[in-house]
Design a protein around this nucleic acid. Sequence first.
RNA 1: UGUCCCGUGGUGUAAAGGUAGCACCAGAGAUUUUGGUUCUCUUGGUCUAGGUUCGAAUCCUGGCGGGACAACCA
Length: 559
Amino acid sequence: MEEIKGQEEKSERSLNFIEEIIEDDLRNNVNESRVHTRFPPEPNGYLHIGHAKSICLNFGLGKKYQGKTNLRFDDTNPVKEDVEYVDSIMEDVKWLGFDWEDRLYYASDYFEQLYEYAIILIKKGKAYVCDMSAEEISETRGTPSRPGKESPYRSRSVDENLELFSRMRAGEFPDGSKVLRAKIDMASPNMQMRDPVLYRILHATHHRTGDTWCIYPMYDFAHGQSDSIERITHSICTLEFEVHRPLYDWFIREIGIYAPRQIEFARLNLSYTVMSKRKLLELVQEKQVKGWDDPRMPTICGLRRRGYTPESIRNFADTIGVAKRDNVIDVSLLEFCIREDLNKKASRIMAVLNPVRVIIDNYPDGIVEEMEAINNPEDETKGKRHLPFSKEIFIERDDFMEDPPNKFFRLAPGREVRLKAAYIIRCERVVKDPGTGEITEIHCTYDPQTKSGMPDSNRKVKGTLHWVSAKHAVEAEIRLYDRLFSKENPDDAEEGKTYKDYLNPDSLKLITAKVEPSVRNAGISEKYQFERIGYFTVDYDSTPENLVFNRVVPLKASW
RNA sequence: UGUCCCGUGGUGUAAAGGUAGCACCAGAGAUUUUGGUUCUCUUGGUCUAGGUUCGAAUCCUGGCGGGACAACCA
């Protein structure tokens, strides 16, 4: 019953253009009505939120159409790749909540098969060994508006090509001395079709195949064929590969193997951050951030450490949709997604980030009351907890004003406020530091009849403040994160500037806060809402002796 | 100055020739022991010029604008 309803709701939702293609294929019984996708990262860096979009898309499609999704490492360039990245990528995909089951593959698994495919092309006269240098090849490729020139080696005989290619594999030639090229069309308006390189010589140790190979296939010669070998039905990639599609199809056709269909979508751009691997790497290497998992980074591991949940990221990916036009998603949508999730899940606690001491003059000395507080008003099952209350407490300095404007609902001389889960208090006077003029103590009186739950506590007061008992509060390091860049699109730099000129100098502020004692033993990654402030998570650096919280996102503030 | 792709509120994304909808953002109000949440409401859009049609965001043509492609990277 539940399930039928769920399916109905799903089918009512409009399809994105990829789903339309798939459903069309399903209707026409293309690929025996199978759906098989793949997520194909190169293990040369950490995954970011843009990859999350692709992961959610590919695995989401597999699930939606009762198909399968592979994880495949596109590891054809040994000089850039490393197992460190393989491991982190697997961790991130799992954390996001997806499962490739037994379908973990590597392009390097197919090196032998790919080599055989190359032989097929050579034998058909569709590939040749070229002795030109990289510079020469580049020079003779032409420009987008001018045709290229054919290589003098283009007309080598099949036998000579076969022999040369075999000797390339055998390690007889140094790096860069020869390549295998497809023989297509040097005058093609599509640059990708101007005799692209299929294999290059690289005497480098591969993280999986070691020194077995000294020739490595290029992306174009590996990707489509890998898709074909895995019998991928819909090979989904980003827009910049659109011009590669004719080549993708050409290889498949000329080799004569199963033909997957490549479909391109627009990659995710997020405001106030950068997404390119090169730039993220630079930020890490130049120590602009503390590492790949710095909570300001748009990496999956950064977002995880920041306190984002897999659900929130999946929901984000769902909400932004999939299309072909370039887009920049506002971070506020990402923030909305994590607030929405954490609002339901996070226990509320009281924490005072910028404390000022309040003394309740008419409250008895030496008494400690246990106040009952609701853990999550959105979820009754989360229960209640007890908070110590005493004569001296801390409130936020911002929650007091000596000379308040009329829309200020908080504490001020002569005004009453409610202390959440405790009493209504009235400010009587303040004590200032004679030197600096800074307020050091706020003296109040409380109304004993207004303890939460008592009839008089229903009295209307304008403001409700959070607080912690001075004697019982625990100190905690708080890391207040803000957007990494102060410019919406840091890539759009003015003359003579780079994206790094727009780094936000205030993207991290460290403070020491007073938090309620119940969180003393909070576990790593535990999420909380600091009442009236924002969502926070326990950082990896945190210990019971030295609590550390990261601010995930502030609460929405509307005044 | 070639080929290809793309133009819908501020940002995303729907509408497959027939009422331009949804989400975020912004603004207003109600509720609230969180200035949170929840609820209600509001502002605001089809790049442009023609054409086809009873009717065009949708089809056609031109223009304009944005993007991709000239790594032995992916």
